[in-house]
């Protein structure tokens, strides 16, 4: 903690002993910017995937569909029977029979808008809204099969589970990608710091000769690398946010239309530069300690 406070407070004398130039400066800034840019994308994807999984789970979990495939003369009778059974079943909130137009709209993506629905033998679809807990599905199916043999109760589980699993999997992969990005950032900064320390062996010799302790030498490198990483990551985040904003939105496009940040989620990209700076601080300190121990 005292090291972090010293970092914030700054020590220009310690910092000035290390030359400002060198490839490690460019390497650190460029790496931090690139990693922050990627981190913003992955964060947006992870948050969107999580949000989408929750949406899909919630929206499909509260609804069910009853499909009635019966000969034309029996279809309306069975539909009436089904609606009566549903109205008597605990856990069923509301029911609504889909109109021909609504069914045509559902088929439109596959058959186009000029489909003559009236010429097709389509099943009757009843949209069911569930109340908390839902019905006893096994009991309901048994009753439907006894009283309306053409009716099939579909609780969407067959569709819902893989979609939610896919969204959750995407979120998990995104989080793994974030960990990898953080690791690569830390390793790159540590390597750059290590290279800088090696390149400044003469400076370290002089500092030791005049009585500098390890923490002074370490501080000379740590603050500079931390600030470079902070600056690079801030630039990367800005470009990342611009790129995320430029992703085209697709109406009803599911996950593709939802990639981005909403409300309190904006705190996450804002934290990226600071997380990168903390990583750089820890990585540089560790690299400095290792190099100083090796030097003896």
């Amino acid at each position: 903690m005292s090291a972090l406070l010293a970092l914030v407070k700054g020590d220009t004398s310690a910092e000035s002993v290390v030359p400002r130039t060198g490839f490690t400066a460019i390497l650190t800034i460029a790496c931090a910017a690139a990693m922050a840019f990627l981190a913003v994308f992955v964060l947006a994807l992870a948050l969107s995937a999580g949000r989408q999984a929750a949406d899909w789970e919630a929206s499909l979990a509260d609804t069910a569909t009853v499909r009635i495939s019966a000969p034309a003369e029996m279809a309306d009778v069975q539909a009436d029977t089904v609606e009566t059974i549903l109205s008597q079943t605990p856990g069923i909130g509301a029911t609504r029979r889909l109109t021909d137009d609504e069914q045509a709209l559902l088929l439109q993506p596959w058959f186009g808008s000029d489909l003559p629905v009236e010429s097709l033998r389509l099943p009757i679809l009843i949209d069911v809204t569930l109340t908390e807990g839902g019905p006893d599905v096994i009991g309901l199916r048994q009753r439907l099969s006894a009283e309306a043999p053409g009716a099939v109760y579909d609780d969407h589980g067959r569709w819902r589970a893989p979609m939610v699993d896919a969204a959750r999997g995407l979120r998990t992969l995104s989080l793994i990608a974030l960990i990898l990005i953080a690791t690569v950032t830390g390793v790159t900064v540590a390597l750059a710091a290590s290279a800088a320390i090696s390149a400044n062996g003469q400076v370290i010799d002089v500092l030791r000769l005049v009585g500098a302790e390890d923490r002074y030498i370490s501080r000379a490198f740590t603050r500079r690398f931390t600030l470079r990483t902070l600056a690079g990551a801030a630039v990367g985040v800005v470009f990342g946010l611009i790129a995320v904003a430029l992703i085209p939105t697709v109406a009803g496009g599911g996950l593709a239309s939802a990639v981005g940040f909403r409300g309190a989620e904006w705190i996450w990209p804002a934290l990226v530069p600071f997380v990168a700076a903390v990583l750089a601080f820890a990585a540089t300190r560790a690299a400095a300690a290792r190099r100083l121990n090796e030097a003896g």
Partner: peptide, 22 residues
Amino acid sequence: DRNAIARLRRRIGVVHQDCRFI
């Protein structure tokens, strides 16, 4: 240890043939 040696050197002035500057 290394840090104690560093503190000790503040009581010893060293002049090298090659001077060793930054």
